[in-house]
Design a protein around this nucleic acid. Structure first.
Lengths: 128, 128
DNA sequence: TTTGTTATGTTATATTATAACATATCACAT
DNA sequence: ATGTGATATGTTATAATATAACATAACAAA
C-alpha cells in the first residue's frame, strides 16, 4: 500500500499528468509557482518521491519527466519509451519480453542483468 | 573517408581511450588542462565532433562519455551499453538483432523506429 | 588567392541538480 | 495525549552540466 501523496507531490504529479510532453524540472517549477512551490528543491524532492513510487519516470536523454499512465506501475527501475522526434511526446511501453531479451544479451557478456533504460526515437502514429 | 582529427579532438579522444570509466566533460577538462585546453567549450566542441563521427558515445544516464572501441563504428546514432553498477565500467554491445527487436516493438504502437539508446544496468563479469 | 567551411580561444551565461540546515508535519506506539 | 522517529518542507546557497556569442585562425578546394 502506497502512502498518500503530500501536497507538493500532488501538485507536481498533476502538472505532469496535464502535460502532453515531458517537462524539465524548471519547467515544472514555472508551472507551479502560482501554487506556492517556490524553489527547485521542492520540485526535485517531489520528483524523487514520485519516481521512487513509480508514478513518474525520468527521460534521461531529455532531462525531463513524465507521469506514468499505468496504475500500479512496475517500472520503478526499468523503463522503455518511444520518443517522437516530431511532436516530442513520449509513450511508455510495457513489454515483458524486453527484459527477457536484455537478460539474454547480458548473459552473452557474462553480465548480470539488473535493470534497463530504453529510449527509442522515431515518429509516432499521429505524426506520420 | 573520415577527415583527420584536430589537435583538441585527438587530446579529448585519447583521454577517453585511456580511461577505464566514462568521463564527464568537466572531468575531461581537468585531465587536459595541462595540454592547453582551457575551457568547457573546447571540450564540448571536441566531443560534439567525436560523437558525430562515431568515435565517442554519450552515456545519457551518467552525463558521461566513452571512447568507442570499435573501428568504423556504425553507432553514430543508436547505442547499447552494459553499465556495471559496481565498477562503473561501461561495455558497448553491438547486437544487430536489438534494432530488429525495437523495430518490431515500435511497429506494435504504429511508431516508426529510427534510432535507440539502450542502457542495461547490472554487474559485470569481473565484479561478480 | 580568395572564398566558404570548419575549428579555435575566450568570456559570459544558461540549464540542470544538490548541499546544508532549521523547522514542521505525520504515523503511531506508549 | 504525548513523545519519538521518520519523512516532508522552506529557504538560501552552490555545484555540475551545457550552450551562446563573437572575434579570429586554419584549412580545403576551386
Amino acid at each position: 500500500m502506497e502512502p498518500d501523496l503530500t501536497n507538493n507531490q500532488k501538485i507536481v504529479l498533476q502538472t505532469l499528468e496535464k502535460s502532453e510532453q515531458p517537462l524539465g524540472a524548471y519547467s515544472i517549477l514555472f508551472n507551479v509557482e502560482k501554487k506556492g512551490i517556490k524553489s527547485p528543491q521542492q520540485v526535485y524532492r517531489a520528483l524523487d518521491k514520485l519516481i521512487t513510487i513509480g508514478a513518474v519516470h525520468k527521460i534521461e536523454s531529455l532531462n525531463s519527466y513524465i507521469a506514468c499512465k499505468h496504475k500500479e506501475c512496475k517500472a520503478r527501475e526499468s523503463t522503455s519509451f518511444l520518443i517522437c522526434q516530431d511532436c516530442q511526446r513520449v509513450f511508455e511501453i510495457l513489454e515483458a519480453d524486453l527484459s527477457d531479451k536484455f537478460l539474454k544479451v547480458s548473459k552473452k557478456s557474462n553480465f548480470k542483468y539488473s535493470t534497463h533504460n530504453l529510449e527509442i526515437f522515431g515518429v509516432c502514429k499521429t505524426c506520420s
